[in-house]
Nucleic acid binder design. Structure first.
Lengths: 232, 232
DNA sequence: CGCAATATTGATTCCGTTCAAGGGTGGTGG
DNA sequence: CCACCACCCTTGAACGGAATCAATATTGCG
């Protein structure tokens, strides 16, 4: 991690949430923020660590995960350009309950807690927007609880692949615009690494996906959607 | 469901959230609310249904669940006296994504959407309180994702039993202050009904719990805590 | 009292984990 | 520049936890 000059004007231009601010508030935010650069693999915050402000991602991707008692990670979200993270702990004034790790080199601004809390209290639209954001995450989390409890690993993997394409898009050649290790995919799906490897190989043999190293391309999305029982 | 006169003054007295309101706002809320009585087994709202306001539980208990494609329920929360539910859909202006069903006879007030949204916009403390509420739920949901992905059914059942005691307390005789079917317990844990029955019998044989019909009493909480790997 | 819902127990199957061994890849430093 | 090492990927084999199927028993409500 290394502090950098500025990433102007990252906040209001990238992040929808901060579009609810008026000029004065926007400017104050830009003054208060601190920009940092993080190398791939570095940790922004850990479970149990106290964090001093909300993180706003300008560039790069973070994985947000919880660590089980045996050390295995469960990825519960990604944060990419325009996303914010860490606000849960700030609002509850509690220690972080997830770990945030850069899976690409990233530029991230930090906004002090009191600034965020003040905004919630004084800007109704900001509060409402943040609430909606949280509610969406909550709904996704609840959906995933149902999925992980009721679907097979094969179904959840299909769902995860679709989610990754939805979230990160595809390159010109049609590959998912995100590079993950097999282990990380397993930590999203909630299964063993070997199971992911086996199932990806199956998908490839069945021409449902194609692979070039860690790059994945979805070749038969209708099948994946049917398999994942989308919208359930 | 049957409309009733009033449950005065349910809101401000029972619900912490509404304690953030001033007198004027409180009174307005009392005027705007509609009180209903629901028999055990009745549905307040369903997945995909549009709801017109936030539900505030005065008396009784609701289970909040999602339904899988094969019809199996996954319980994601309970709502009891003093809790509110349905606010996610209201705030996002989306159809409900869960079903709420009374598992006891219940008295529930409904507060129109626009009243809630107005409060979020104009009362900073109300917004902040609601945000904290949502964040807590989100954290619980994420924890449960990790648990269901990494723990055994036995461990999750132990955790669920502790959660039920924490949430609903115990009767004078030491039984959990909530009556659930085995199937409902299975739908919390995320497993098959038969597995819950088998494991509860095991727990009884091992003197970890005692049972009288649907009533359950935790006899060896330290063991359950150790088993559930609490705080992980 | 009788029926429907719920609970219980046993037998069997199977999905997914775990353990093990080997091959590939990329990054770093000499 | 390339050799080495750490990390990652892959495949096979065996085990086991939990689901499913099946056959009663019990409960409780109308």
């Amino acid at each position: 991690m290394e502090q950098i000059e500025n990433c102007n004007p990252c906040l209001s231009s990238i992040n929808r949430l901060f579009k609810t601010l008026n000029n004065e508030q926007s400017q104050y935010l830009e003054e208060q923020k601190i920009c940092n650069e993080y190398k791939k693999g570095s940790i922004l915050y850990k479970e149990t660590s106290r964090i001093m402000g909300v993180y706003c991602i300008c560039k790069g991707v973070l994985k947000i995960y919880k660590t089980g008692s045996d050390g295995k990670e469960q990825i519960v979200a990604f944060a990419r350009s325009g996303d914010i993270t860490g606000y849960r702990s700030i609002l509850s004034n509690e220690a972080a309950c997830t770990t945030a790790e850069a899976i690409q080199n990233a530029i991230v601004c930090q906004i002090p807690s009191n600034v965020i809390i003040e905004l919630v209290k004084t800007n109704g639209n900001f509060a409402l927007h943040l609430l909606k954001l949280t509610c969406r995450e909550l709904n996704q989390a609840n959906s995933f609880i149902k999925d992980i409890a009721q679907k097979t690993v094969r179904e959840r993997l299909a769902e995860t692949l679709l989610m990754l394409e939805e979230t990160f898009g595809v390159t010109e050649e049609g590959y998912l615009n995100i590079i993950l290790t097999r282990e990380e995919i397993a930590n999203i799906v909630g299964t063993a690494t070997e199971s992911v490897i086996r199932l990806l190989s199956e998908f490839r043999r069945e021409k449902i996906i194609s692979m070039k190293g860690k790059q994945l391309a979805l070749k038969n999305k209708p099948y994946l959607q049917k398999l994942s029982k989308a919208f359930n």
